[in-house]
Amino acid sequence: MAYSDKVIDHTENPRNVGTLDKEDPNVGTGLVGAPACGDVMRLQLKISDDGTIQDAKFKTFGCGSAIASSSLVTEWVKGKTVDQALTLSNKDVARELALPPVKIHCSVLAEDAIKAAIADFRKKRAARQAP
């Protein structure tokens, strides 16, 4: 199966690969997996107190489409608000990367990772605000 140029570009030059401090109260971590493919994806967001995503990092072990999907979403969400990031859909990712039907689940994984990272951030914040 041939990868699209955009997938190849993101696979060869992935953006925002790395790690943020998991213990930082402003960092939310999302860890998701596609077990059938053996893919695992960690996506981290640094979110300011006013709800803006200041930084995004990811680490993905998996196929080119999974790496490209996570690389693309980290680019997209930077500078966005949490609410804007939550409206991001896997369909946007799949369209931008021209993913074939058998690789759509890779874009779903990236969407899940963003949602999981934001959920983690919100949980941390709620814990911080609890008396």
Partner: peptide
Amino acid sequence: VDLDHAGGGPRDLPIEMLEEVLELREALA
């Protein structure tokens, strides 16, 4: 539960299992 179908399989893996896998893959990298 079809784990031989791309994108198939459980979507509720315990987080410890994913952490275990990620740590191993990082160590190998």
